Simulated assay, not measured.
Amino acid sequence: MRWRRYGEHAALLDCDSLTQMSAAHATIVAARPDGVAELVPGARSLLVVAHPGSSALDDVRALIGKADLTRPPSGTPREITIEVHYDGEDLALVAETAGLSEREVVDLHSGASYTVAFTGFAPGFGYLTGLPEPLRQPRLASPRTRVPAGSVAIAGEFTSVYPSSTPGGWRLLGHTRTTLFDQHAEPPALLAPGDRVRFRSG
């Protein structure tokens, strides 16, 4: 892991893996150091933003230096279940690529337990880890210009739900009516890093 100052009141942790980033993020969240204004996790990085005049960056660096970053600290994560209707445009393609039946794809996807590693791309879009190995497939060669809101999709090692209608190249397995982002809600986004998510076929 590499620690770099990022402007006057922030630091960027370049992590060796997604697991290390998730462990660092969870460690900081669990310790709640004074003066930390914001944490912005990414696939292999973690941005730590401090309130001006605080010792938060030094405190976080010392905390991370002593932590076991091979796994997140123990705790009780929030559990979220999302109902999915598995009727996605790419369900047959995913099944064919994986050498499975469509029913087996649905059973694998809905039978796994996922963790929100980080969010980004669009407000409320969570990158969920825990996708079963047989379902790990690349993005589409040609992205769609419009993916409907609520689309449940996979790409690489991740699965997610499109919170709004946007362009996208992930493979679509189905859709949900669950609202992933509501600017009038508190908090606006349903998913946050560290949350555990299960998909239920309905």
Rank of each mutant, 00 (worst) to 15 (best):
E79Y: 02
V161W: 07
G174L: 06
I64F: 09
R144F: 01
E157S: 15
R78Y: 04
Y127L: 09
P132C: 02
R61P: 03
R139F: 06
A56R: 01
Y6A: 10
P77L: 07
R44I: 14
S201A: 00
T159R: 10
L12M: 12
A98C: 09
E83L: 00
L47V: 15
A149E: 10
E79Q: 15
T70R: 13
V147W: 02
P188M: 09
M1H: 11
G65I: 03
H51I: 07
S142C: 00
G194A: 02
A149G: 08
R171F: 11
L140P: 14
P77Q: 09
H25L: 14
G124A: 08
V197I: 10
R171W: 11
R2A: 15
A98K: 03
A92F: 02
A155V: 06
S142V: 01
F118W: 03
P138H: 00
L12E: 14
E8M: 02
I154Y: 13
G124P: 15
V116D: 11
S22K: 06
S165I: 02
Q20Y: 08
V116Y: 01
P148V: 06
A192G: 04
S151A: 12
Y86K: 09
G99P: 06
R136I: 11
V152M: 10
S101D: 00
H109Q: 03
E83G: 09
S101W: 01
A50F: 01
Y114E: 12
G202Q: 07
A43R: 07
A23P: 15
D195L: 13
R2W: 07
G42K: 04
I64K: 07
L190I: 14
A23F: 15
R171N: 05
R103N: 05
A95D: 05
F181C: 13
R139L: 08
E186K: 04
V147Y: 00
T19E: 15
V106G: 00
A31K: 05
G194F: 00
D68S: 04
E133F: 06
R103W: 03
V36R: 11
S113A: 14
W3D: 05
L131D: 05
G124C: 11
D90K: 03
G88P: 14
T97Y: 01
T145C: 03
G120E: 02
A95P: 11
G75E: 03
F158M: 09
L63H: 11
L191V: 04
P77A: 15
I64S: 06
I82D: 09
G169Y: 12
